[in-house]
């Protein structure tokens, strides 16, 4: 009898869990579905299916430019945030000093400030520097968010690294740069890949700061989506959203694969 109750409890938990999950993921399905709508309005479920909005997207110079802008901002953010996050985490783990304990709260600070406030503040600040509406301003703003996340991922990666390997490398004649390349990098490369993807996706989906910091020429996809939504609710926004979802899912798969390969390799050895 108690066994049946237990089974029932487990089943109920699973059903509830799946229900929550479905409710959370459902909007994504709706977005994808509406992108294939044949009608000119955003409607669900679509009355008829077509890919005309996909053609419209690829025919629209403004959208394509926004796509390029997002790509530039994303790659730029990935480079800046990955470099800064990795070096900070490496420095903290490799040379534990007094500075380390105050570094972590400082690094986390940008994540705690509302993006609206960051956006306004950065707008004033970058205008002063003459960087207003430039790619660089968007990249730096996004890096403010992406760097802490890269830092935390890499910190946990470096914590698991056996620092005796670094000693062994130095002892065998490798200078610090060669130690990093030949000894440390092979051990942490999947962590670097994961954190780089994370940085890219953060930049890709960030909207509020980009809204403040971009203009018509440099606007990213979320900014343009917002602007066009204010005028009309066309399914082209759903097309763009579908692309963003696709990019994020592919990124996640790559990350999962990279970490799993490491995991599988460890299991096999």
């Amino acid at each position: 009898m108690p066994r049946n109750v237990e089974r029932l409890g487990t089943a109920a938990f699973r059903i509830g869990y799946i229900a929550i999950f479905v409710v959370m993921l459902l909007p994504l399905g709706i977005v994808v579905a509406t992108s294939f709508s044949a009608s000119g309005n955003l409607q669900f479920p679509p009355q008829a299916l077509s890919v005309q909005w996909y053609s419209a997207f690829f025919a629209d110079v403004v959208w394509l430019r926004a796509f390029d802008n997002s790509l530039v901002a994303g790659i730029g953010t990935t480079v800046v945030a990955t470099f800064m996050g990795i070096t900070a985490a490496f420095g903290l783990e490799a040379h534990r000093g007094r500075f380390g304990s105050i570094l972590t709260p400082i690094v986390i600070l940008p994540l705690l400030i509302p993006p609206v406030i960051l956006g306004v503040t950065l707008l004033v600040y970058f205008s002063r520097l003459g960087l207003r509406s430039s790619y660089l301003s968007i990249i730096l703003a996004h890096s403010l968010w992406a760097t802490p996340l890269v830092f935390f991922v890499m910190q946990s990666v470096f914590q698991r690294f056996d620092w005796q390997l670094r000693d062994a490398g130095m002892d065998l004649g490798a200078n610090p740069i060669r130690v990093f390349v030949h000894v440390i990098l092979p051990n942490v490369k999947s962590g670097i890949l994961v954190s780089a993807l994370l940085a890219f996706i953060i930049s890709l989906q960030e909207f509020v700061m980009a809204l403040f910091l971009s203009n018509y020429q440099t606007q990213t996809i979320p900014v343009l989506a917002w602007n066009s939504l204010r005028q009309s609710l066309t399914p082209i926004v759903s097309v763009v959203s579908t692309f963003l979802i696709l990019v994020s899912v592919v990124g996640l798969l790559v990350a999962a694969l990279a970490t799993n390969i490491e995991f599988v390799a460890k299991r096999l050895s």
Partner: peptide, 21 residues
């Protein structure tokens, strides 16, 4: 003189072999 310039070589307690090589 840093370790990488010295003509000494060390065998470590946990051997510190490079796992990816």
């Amino acid at each position: 003189q840093p370790a990488y310039d010295r003509d000494t070589s060390m065998v470590f307690q946990n051997w510190a072999l490079f796992p990816y090589k």
